[in-house]
Design a protein around this nucleic acid. Structure first.
Lengths: 173, 173
DNA sequence: TCCATATAGTTAGGTTCCTAATTACAAGCC
DNA sequence: GGCTTGTAATTAGGAACCTAACTATATGGA
């Protein structure tokens, strides 16, 4: 434990945003900037916490998501489709499958229809792994958002998806 | 462009969450789970977009944050304090400083008071780099959250910080 | 004063993701 | 039918983090 050694961190502050914007003589809205920066910080922290969480079960976030996605697809799916639905590159999926296959949680079969393709199949052990971690996993997810009421969660989902749609503003042009 | 080749993705769905929870015979709230999962997905996407964004200026997210933090501290700060305020490990800060120093954006000075410590100083070139990217950077951040009204952003900040406080639920015990 | 313990910074090695290039097969067009 | 172009999966190499172990200096008792 080194990087997140304290619980503090209302890390980037509205005042900091204000100061920066003024310093550069810009007319941006400090609050808007703060929203963006806080969301980035939250995302980074959550990503790290997620890795810690899944490492308890010998998985990583990516490997868990792949298993869960497979389960959701009746236990089989091609690497390409997995990459698309997980939102990662096909190269990354190759690596995830490699390690899951080593652990016996999935296996690769050549596709019957397409000589280039293969099919990733969830093994009994993979399905069991998902069953084993489900109670703890879902309990923790729920605990994480327990600070919000049902109505607040609805609002949050709406606002989050609208900010998410704006992420393209960072990369475009 | 491979991983985020489409604009789709209201990726994890309430129905998916419901199905999973039912499948494992749990009594978790699907909506709560959805909030957690969506936030993780948003964080990951935002993190990647952020790297793309800063790479336009020859920086990474981490290197930019270090520079901005330095600027906010009158241009100098120790590696340890930088690590603490950036929320990354000291080893990571060492690497960030190495590359920033190579580019002439910061420099290392031994601390006068503490023989173990050093002080990282923002160079004129580092300060110039920040000035150069500020207009585009803040414009994009603002564009990202432009889909929310001022009131909505206030609500979002509140809800986000409350969820952020719950992140510990993933790692504790 | 001396020694145990703590802290600052770095190094070594591992993880997760990425892009670009490679190999194999598929499919449309002349 | 043969050729070009497209797609599936992998490989190779890189970037950004991490933890653990190391070196050097500081500090606070006995």
């Amino acid at each position: 434990m080194d990087a997140h050694e304290s619980s503090f961190e209302e890390a980037p502050t509205l005042d900091q945003a204000r100061r920066q914007i003024r310093h550069y003589g810009l007319d941006s809205d400090p609050q808007a900037v703060l929203v963006a920066v806080r969301l980035m910080a939250a995302g980074a922290r959550l990503g790290q916490a997620s890795e810690v969480h899944f490492s308890r079960f010998g998985l990583s976030t990516g490997r868990y998501r792949l298993l869960a996605d497979l389960e959701d697809s009746e236990g089989e799916k091609s690497p390409s489709l997995l990459a698309a639905s997980l939102g990662v590159s096909r190269a990354t999926v190759t690596g995830l499958i490699d390690s899951l296959e080593r652990d016996g949680l999935v296996l690769r079969r050549p596709s019957a229809r397409d000589g280039r393709a293969s099919v990733v199949v969830l093994t009994a052990r993979g399905a069991q792994k998902l069953r084993d971690l489900a109670p703890d996993h879902f309990r923790r997810l729920q605990a994480m958002v327990a600070g919000l009421s049902v109505e607040e969660r609805t609002v949050f989902l709406d606002l989050l998806s609208r900010v998410t749609r704006g992420i393209g503003a960072l990369t475009e042009r």
